[in-house]
Design a protein around this nucleic acid. Structure first.
Lengths: 161, 161
DNA sequence: TATTTATCCTACTAATTTGGTCGGCTTTTG
DNA sequence: CAAAAGCCGACCAAATTAGTAGGATAAATA
């Protein structure tokens, strides 16, 4: 089992899409800036999210990504799964052939743990996250930051720098 | 967060000790054979388990390892922790400085998940595992295998091979 | 006392994964 | 046509895993 920045980034980026739903396609450059994730790395993650039909892309200027399903129909477990992070705690992928073809001493323990984690993560949708007050707080802070930056760059442009 | 063979091996080996409690020190060679874990790798894991006072060692012939506490007082979470596997799902070790000093969009989600996993794993002791019927079944299978091997090697010794 | 059994300790290693970077291509809009 | 975006493949440094190898030390036994 593994849960690293890869899966966390994927969920964060998907949540960013959910938060900006209805505003047309969102560019990876925007997500990169708001969430502090490298653009090229986001591209790799979104290639996988797209292959799993979680997002749809629009190319060309003004393009970007959108959720391919209502945010209430996308749960955290599938997002993590889409970027190949394995939320399974067994060593044998639940096959039960952990010790030379047979079940190892702790196989069932890891199965139980896997169930526990999967139940938890698949019970949370992007819509649920959007409604959380901690998410709302962070999101509005990020919006403010981005607005500041845009004003700053407007000044630079206007003054010819 | 990471849960690989390292943590699984540690729990399996500790459970092996719990299953053979009262029979004096158990050698790593025995555990290695029963559980199919490399001896040198076990040595490295037990160095950590010993440093965390989970086991006590007896050197010399007939030596080995024993649980340093009653099996009902050792839970799965501490065993995994002792071998440095991190069961924390956040990227910031719960510090909340995930995004340039501030909380990232999904911080609280990963905190909740971590709590979930920790509650589950710390609620299971070695004594609980010893009582499980799936563990008993695997254990008796392993005992039988080991007895077979010992007879086979006795034959080899007796016949002078 | 010599041998054997076991823990203890350090160093090395191949393979894999992570979290990227870089460069260039294609599509679409203005 | 230029610019903005997605798309794609190659490459990379660092870390981690799951070991191996080789020896030192301690204790029991012959």
């Amino acid at each position: 089992m593994r849960l690293t920045t890869k899966g966390r980034y994927a969920v964060t980026a998907m949540l960013d899409l959910a938060l900006h739903e209805g505003k047309g396609p969102i560019s990876l450059a925007d997500i990169s800036e708001r969430q502090g994730i490298s653009l090229s790395y986001l591209e790799q993650l979104f290639a996988k999210l797209r292959r799993n039909n979680l997002v749809a892309s629009v190319r060309g200027p003004g393009g970007g990504y959108q959720l391919n399903r209502p945010k209430a129909d996308i749960d955290v477990a599938e997002v993590i799964d889409a970027v190949n992070e394995n939320v399974d705690a067994t060593g044998c992928n639940r096959r039960g052939d952990c010790q030379s073809g047979e079940v190892c001493l702790t196989h069932h323990l890891w199965c139980d743990l896997s169930d526990q984690i999967h139940t938890f993560l698949s019970g949370i949708t992007l819509a649920d996250l959007v409604e959380r007050k901690d998410v709302k707080a962070v999101s509005s802070r990020q919006e403010a930051r981005q607005a500041e930056k845009m004003i700053a760059s407007d000044i630079r442009v206007a003054s010819g720098l």
